[in-house]
Amino acid sequence: MAEERQWEARDIARIAVFAGIIVALGFVAPIPVPGLVPITAQTLGVMLAGTVLGARRAGAAVGVVFLLAAIGLPVLSGGRGGLGVFLGPASGYLIGWLPGAMVVGLIVHAGARRITWWRTALGAVVGGIAVVYAFGIPVQAASTGLGLGETALTSLAFLPGDAIKAAVATALTLALYRAYPPAFPAPVRRARAVAP
Rank of each mutant, 00 (worst) to 15 (best):
M1L: 12
A2E: 14
A2M: 14
E3M: 12
E3D: 14
R5L: 15
W7F: 15
W7G: 01
W7E: 04
E8R: 15
I12W: 14
A13Q: 11
I15S: 03
A16V: 00
A16D: 01
A16R: 06
F18H: 02
A19Y: 01
A19E: 01
G20Y: 02
I21Y: 07
L25I: 04
V28H: 09
V28P: 00
A29Q: 11
P30L: 14
P32K: 11
P34I: 12
G35L: 11
V37A: 14
V37R: 08
P38M: 12
T40R: 08
Q42R: 11
L44H: 04
G45R: 09
M47F: 03
V52A: 09
L53F: 04
G54K: 12
R56H: 07
R57Y: 02
A58S: 14
A58I: 02
A58F: 02
A58P: 01
G59K: 06
G59L: 11
A60H: 00
G63M: 09
V65P: 00
L67R: 07
A69S: 13
A70D: 00
I71D: 05
I71N: 04
P74D: 10
P74E: 11
V75T: 02
V75C: 05
L76E: 06
G78N: 11
G79E: 13
R80A: 15
G82V: 07
G84D: 14
G84C: 08
V85T: 04
F86H: 10
A90W: 00
S91Y: 04
S91P: 00
G92T: 05
G92S: 09
I95N: 03
G96W: 03
G96K: 06
L98T: 00
A101P: 00
V104N: 03
G105T: 01
V108T: 13
H109P: 00
A110S: 15
G111W: 10
G111V: 05
R113K: 15
R113Y: 05
R113F: 02
R119H: 06
T120C: 11
L122Q: 04
L122A: 15
L122M: 14
V126W: 01
V126K: 08
G127T: 03
G128R: 14
V131M: 07
V132N: 07
F135T: 05
F135L: 12
F135C: 08
F135R: 03
G136D: 01
A142F: 10
A142I: 09
T144I: 02
T144R: 09
G145Q: 13
G147E: 11
L148N: 04
L148M: 13
G149C: 07
E150R: 14
T151D: 06
P160K: 15
P160D: 10
P160T: 10
P160E: 13
P160F: 13
G161S: 07
G161E: 08
D162Q: 10
D162R: 08
D162A: 04
A163C: 12
I164N: 06
A171L: 15
L172E: 00
L172K: 06
L176S: 09
Y177Q: 04
R178H: 10
R178L: 10
P181C: 15
F184L: 07
R189S: 02
R189G: 00
V194A: 13
V194Q: 13
A195E: 15
A195Y: 06
